[in-house]
């Protein structure tokens, strides 16, 4: 399988603080790859770097062969990023927000309509799309944002804690949507604290702590390697 994302010896310092200490991993085509780790492990920094929002201190990151430093603008055309607990423009309607983002990705009206059609399917908000986002529940908002992130069918979707703070039903719907999209061609890089969710959702997992990736593998491989019943135990073993 081809690599959609390739990260080599990626380092990021904030002043004297080393947030990432040279991490390397790849995300393959149509793969769901998860970064798991505690708060402050470097998950969000990694995702922000790949989303071209932050500049790496050193290392090479390529998305579909494009360097995130040299070709940042082209990279932004083929990725989408969903920040953890991202907010919304409360005065805009869901429909207007989706149209706005669609127009940033394409000047072609027909293509924009295609994006919107996809987004409507993912968000599944029906007529509520015509209401202001400020009136949405947390679950509705998250589904709208996920629809925004996936509607352009990006080569790489970067999702930071996609189900954070959601109830079981909403979390399940979002997980199913992510899986469906991965099948149709979008590779997914996500982060989560929720090890059980990661086990269910991801093809491969990287365990990250204190800016270092300790191990990478499928859930089954990691569980077998560390002789653990689930990823939580794997993580406890690795982090020890």
């Amino acid at each position: 399988m081809n690599d959609v994302l390739s990260v080599k010896d990626l380092k990021k310092n904030y002043g004297r603080f080393e947030a990432l200490r040279g991490i390397s991993f790849e995300v393959r085509d149509k793969e769901i790859f998860a970064l798991i780790g505690p708060n402050g492990a470097g998950k969000t920094t990694t995702l922000r770097l790949i989303a071209t929002i932050l500049q790496p201190t050193s290392g090479i990151v390529k998305v579909a062969g494009l360097d995130i430093k040299e070709d940042a603008e082209k990279v932004r055309e083929i990725i989408s990023y969903l920040p953890e607990e991202a907010g919304v423009y409360k005065n805009l309607t869901g429909e207007y927000y989706l149209r706005f983002i669609a127009a940033l990705f394409s000047g072609d009206k027909k293509e924009q309509e295609g994006y919107l059609e996809t987004a409507r399917g993912i968000a599944n908000l029906g007529e509520r799309l015509g209401n202001k986002i400020g009136t949405y529940s947390k679950g509705m908002t998250r589904k709208l944002l996920l629809a925004r992130a996936l509607m352009t069918k990006p080569k790489l979707a970067i999702l930071d804690e996609p189900t954070s703070g959601l109830d079981v039903i909403n979390a399940l719907e979002i997980r199913n949507t992510i899986r469906e999209f991965a099948r149709t061609g979008t590779s997914v890089l996500l982060s989560s604290h929720n090890m059980l969710e990661i086990e269910y959702l991801s093809d491969r997992v990287a365990i990250i702590d204190k800016g270092t990736i300790h191990d990478i593998g499928t859930s089954d491989e990691l569980k077998a390697k560390y002789d653990s019943a689930n990823l939580e135990e794997v993580f406890a073993e690795v982090a020890r």
Partner: peptide, 18 residues
């Protein structure tokens, strides 16, 4: 400040816009 606080700015910064 609102966009920054609510992380809406991060979405815009990762969109294909100069």
């Amino acid at each position: 400040a609102t966009e920054k606080e609510n992380k809406m700015l991060e979405t815009l910064l990762s969109a294909p816009v100069r």
